[in-house]
Each structure stands twice: as structure tokens, then as C-alpha cells.
């Protein structure tokens, strides 16, 4: 009865995992799956396109992912907690619109408009957090509702029109370069600072540790005396703040406040953070992973633009396909699909 059970068939994935379990070198290699994906994409586009690896294009990649990076900083907190924030795009648009409206229509001087925009976004994040923590509404629903609320307010304030007069402050943040026309864009610095602050909070503060703990095992966190409700509220507030800041920056970059300018950022943000290796289930991942995810995303988007032979109508399709493959590679390498089938 107790004969050794031998599988008749072992898949490539199983064999790979066996290898992984046996060799520490293999384990180290696979922990960096995301980095390998990034390198592979980078090498591929460098070979496939002459313009891709030029310094000016690399700077472009950074600029292109900067707004996304600010959104992603907030989203990393949210996903680490095992929650989701579907309102970031709409909240960012509202932040931009409030600020532009105050500046151009009501004549307030900076920094009041920008602070008001970011303040409103932060407040909406706080409200979603309270709704979910206090009344146990899943964040999926509370932020979905918040997305409609913010979108509705944006429409109401803008009456559907684009505001093209925006403040100098936001333009400095969004499109100025330090050190002449070929210098470092301010937007990149803002993005790096946001990511760095997020990293320090998550890695070095008690609050950061509580976020990981709560995301990994809520009941364990509660038993250790963590006020998990408060953690949720703070995390959603942080996400709101990041969305607000991203809205202002994006407005400065486009030199206008447009009701629909940030629409595509929701999916891109979640995509980039998860691609980096932060788990949707909470408790695993962090800012370094998010940085890798952002770079993969940026490389892919920009790289496809730099291969002239690709049909531009196919770009979206190719991006999606490569993303799916990258995610598959991540899960196989990281071994996240476990043996226990009840999970």
C-alpha cells in the first residue's frame, strides 16, 4: 500500500520547480525573475531598434513612466494590504480639474490651487478608507463608487471642457528640465522622491511593517494589537494623495486639465505594480518590485514605438500579450502556484 507514488507525467513547470528546490543558485536566479524579464526586453529592443538605446530615449522612458510611478507608489501600499483602489484615475482627474479651476477661473495664486487639488484627492482616499474600514464595504466597491463620485465632480466642475490655462508651478513639476533642454526632467525627480519616500515608509517604519503584517495575515495582526482598520484608512489616504499629486503632475505635463487625461492610468498602474511582483493577495512585494515593474512597462511601451516596422494598430495587442507572458514567467519562476490546492 505504501509504495512510492510516481507521477506518470511531470510537466515542464514541475520539473523546473524540482530543479529550483534542489539548487540554491537556481533559487537565487528565480527570485530575480522580474529583473531577468526587464533585461531580456531591454536587450531585445536594443537589438531590434537603433534608436531605442540612445541616452535621449532612455530619458524618455523615465519621463514616460514618471506619472505612472507616482500612481504606483500609492497602489503598492494598497496591494500590499490585499486591497484595491479603482478610483485613482478619476481622483487624479478631479485633483487636476479642481486646481485648474481655482487657478484660471477663480484667480487663486499658487500654491493654493495645487494644494487644494491634492487635498481633495487625499480626502476622497480617506473617505474610501473609512467606508471600507468602518462599514466593511470591500475596497473594490467603495473605490468603484468613489471613482464615479470623483468623475462626476470633474464633469460638474469642468462642464466637460478642457482648461488650458494652468499654473507655472504645475508646469514646472510636469515639464521643466533641470540643466537646459537636455537636462533631467523635474517629473522624474518627483517620481523618484515619491518612490523613495514610499520605500522608506514601507521598509523602515512601524506603519510599514503593520501594512505587511495586515496584508499577510489580518487575524495575526489583530492578535498582535494592530489596529487594522486604521492601517486601511491610512493606506487608502496615501493612495488618494498619490493620485492627487499624479493628477497635478500630469496636468503640468500636458499644459492643460482634461477630464479624461488620466483614464488609462488605472489599468496601467495595477499592471505595473503586479508585474513587478507585488501580490494582489497582500503581504508580498514592495517598492523595489514596483520600480522593476515600472521599468518593464516603460521599456515595453517605448520599445514598441521604436520599432518602425510594427503596425501601430497592433501595438496594444502586442503589449497585452507580452504582459501576459511576463506574468506567466513570474509565477512559474516565483513558484507562487503552490501544491496546496485548497488555497
Amino acid at each position: 500500500m505504501n509504495s512510492v507514488i510516481k507521477p506518470r507525467f511531470s510537466s515542464f513547470v514541475d520539473r523546473f520547480r524540482g530543479l529550483q528546490a534542489s539548487s540554491p543558485w537556481m533559487r537565487r536566479f528565480s527570485m530575480l525573475a522580474q529583473v531577468w524579464t526587464l533585461i531580456a526586453l531591454f536587450v531585445f529592443f536594443s537589438l531590434a531598434s537603433d534608436s531605442f538605446s540612445r541616452p535621449i530615449n532612455l530619458r524618455n522612458i523615465l519621463t514616460q513612466v514618471s506619472t505612472l510611478a507616482i500612481f504606483a507608489s500609492g497602489m503598492t501600499f494598497v496591494l500590499l494590504l490585499g486591497q484595491i483602489d479603482l478610483s485613482i484615475a478619476a481622483v487624479a482627474a478631479l485633483s487636476a480639474m479642481i486646481s485648474a479651476h481655482l487657478y484660471s477661473k477663480l484667480g487663486y495664486a499658487e500654491p493654493i490651487p495645487s494644494l487644494a487639488g491634492i487635498g481633495a484627492a487625499t480626502f476622497l482616499g480617506f473617505v474610501s478608507g473609512v467606508a471600507s474600514a468602518r462599514f466593511r464595504i470591500p475596497t473594490f466597491m467603495s473605490t468603484l463608487a468613489m471613482s464615479l463620485i470623483a468623475g462626476g465632480l470633474t464633469t460638474y466642475i469642468s462642464k466637460g471642457r478642457v482648461i488650458t490655462k494652468v499654473s507655472q508651478l504645475s508646469m514646472t513639476l510636469g515639464s521643466k528640465r533641470i540643466g537646459g533642454p537636455d537636462g533631467l526632467p523635474v517629473i522624474v525627480i518627483v517620481a523618484i522622491v515619491t518612490l523613495a519616500v514610499g520605500y522608506v515608509i514601507l521598509r523602515y517604519t512601524r506603519f510599514g511593517r503593520y501594512t505587511y503584517m495586515t496584508g499577510a495575515n489580518r487575524s495575526a495582526a489583530r492578535l498582535a494589537g494592530v489596529n487594522t482598520d486604521r492601517i486601511l484608512v491610512v493606506v487608502m489616504t496615501i493612495s488618494g494623495f498619490c493620485a492627487g499629486l499624479a493628477g497635478i503632475i500630469s496636468m503640468g505635463r500636458l499644459h492643460s486639465a482634461q477630464p479624461d487625461a488620466t483614464d488609462s492610468f488605472l489599468i496601467d498602474t495595477i499592471g505595473a505594480v503586479v508585474l513587478g511582483g507585488t501580490s494582489l493577495m497582500g503581504g508580498r512585494g514592495g517598492m523595489p518590485q514596483t520600480v522593476i515593474g515600472l521599468l518593464i512597462y516603460g521599456t515595453l511601451r517605448n520599445g514598441l514605438d521604436n520599432i518602425p516596422s510594427i503596425d501601430i494598430y497592433l501595438k496594444e495587442f502586442i503589449t497585452g500579450t507580452v504582459l501576459l507572458v511576463a506574468l506567466l514567467i513570474n509565477t512559474v519562476f516565483a513558484g507562487t502556484a503552490e501544491r496546496d490546492r485548497t488555497i
Partner: peptide, 18 residues
């Protein structure tokens, strides 16, 4: 329910006292 099984022993011990 009370331990973070993936985390090292020392972090599980300091959890309530951070």
C-alpha cells in the same frame, strides 16, 4: 491565525511590541 508563517521567527516575536 496568530503567526506569520512565511516570516522569520524574530519578526513574529517582535510583532506585538514594535
Amino acid at each position: 491565525k496568530s503567526l506569520l508563517l512565511d516570516q522569520p521567527i524574530y519578526q513574529n516575536i517582535t510583532m506585538p511590541h514594535l
